[in-house]
Design a protein around this nucleic acid. Structure first.
Lengths: 206, 206
DNA sequence: GTCTATACTTGGATAGAC
DNA sequence: GTCTATCCAAGTATAGAC
């Protein structure tokens, strides 16, 4: 239901969506005010009216993707206990993100941050929740196990985010997602092995 | 010792070096013909004379870094046997690359490839040797062990390159190399564990 | 809030003098 | 092989009409 009077932000939203799409398809370099505005079906000047600068719009795009992804991740991981299940869900998430290009937005913003003063800190701020989410999911999965006692969840989370990012970039580069797929298969096997050797944390009453 | 007559390619080399530095400091977006030429102390037009386009110069820069790195890697890994030693050497290499910004060149080129048609394939071509090198080093290290029988070296190499890339991007983003450092420490511990449980491949005559 | 028009800057690329 | 000058396209950003 729409209000006839103000209807405050349809253009703003369209610009953000267009910015996301442009980052996915044309990368950071291709994400100019003109390119984004054209994709949004509106004009270039509105970007500066609504966001002040192209950079701010791109950050809004990153916020959008970040929020959406973290929401979906939370739903997916909510009902996960064992490491095996976690890997299974992570594989699913990874493939979804890869095909939809969600991570491309992140990767392009990180790389682009090298070129725009001050952007790095803003991007870092927005990546922190991803790492924190991974840490929490990992802790819930291996927190009570011997492995969890040896390997700090925070460090592992950092590695997972980095690997996630690197795999996306390589997959995107030559359009081949097979190597990444095989890796997740491998991770699944290792997780299965882990569940049999170490004590699992799922519903084990001692 | 310099020849007085032709002295064929000093400018060309200076441009390549300047391109490398510019990619490191200002990223793909900042690596314009004018910015590179200024850093090289020569003028913009020479880039097109020598390389035809900025993109070609950037690829030459990537070639340069790639060749130099693979050479150094080869030297370092040449005398490595056990997984523990491999991790040790890898840590050293990683820190060197991180501080020198070698991987930044790679990361920026991969990210920038999204924006320039045809660049992706060229960059992919130049990354292939890195993966192949990693595969070979891994195979030499765990090839004869039980782990090597379960985990394909090629898949692991892909993961290593991806992780390497991802860690560089995250470290570069917020200027904090501590998380990456802790990870390598962790990897060292795991490798040590591996050497004790599984059979090591180093000089074991049965 | 949206559109058109425009100022200003930077960048890729070429021509021509030296 | 190098430098200057220049063209043209694209980018950011603002002003002002609607």
């Amino acid at each position: 239901m729409e209000r006839g009077g103000t209807r405050s932000a349809p253009t703003r939203r369209r610009l953000v969506e267009a910015a996301v799409e442009t980052l996915k398809e044309d990368g950071f370099v291709g994400a100019s005010a003109r390119a984004i505005a054209e994709r949004a079906g509106s004009n270039q000047g509105l970007i500066f009216y609504h966001f002040g600068s192209v950079t701010n719009l791109l950050l809004a795009a990153l916020d959008e993707v970040s929020a959406e992804r973290l929401h979906d991740y939370g739903e997916a991981v909510g009902r996960v206990g064992s490491p095996g299940e976690l890997v299974e869900v992570a594989t699913d998430i990874f493939l979804t993100d890869l095909d939809a290009g969600h991570m491309t937005v992140l990767a392009e913003m990180i790389a682009g941050a090298s070129s725009v003063p001050g952007l790095g800190a803003e991007v870092a701020k927005r990546i922190h929740p991803w790492r924190e989410f991974a840490r929490s999911a990992i802790e819930n999965s291996i927190g009570g196990t011997p492995l969890g006692a040896v390997v700090p969840a925070g460090d592992l989370a950092h590695a997972v985010v980095a690997l996630y990012l690197g795999l996306e970039m390589l997959s995107h580069l030559d359009g081949d997602r097979q190597p990444a797929l095989r890796l997740f298969g491998l991770a699944g096997q290792l997780a299965g092995l882990l569940e049999m050797t170490g004590a699992s944390s799922t519903s084990t009453t001692d």
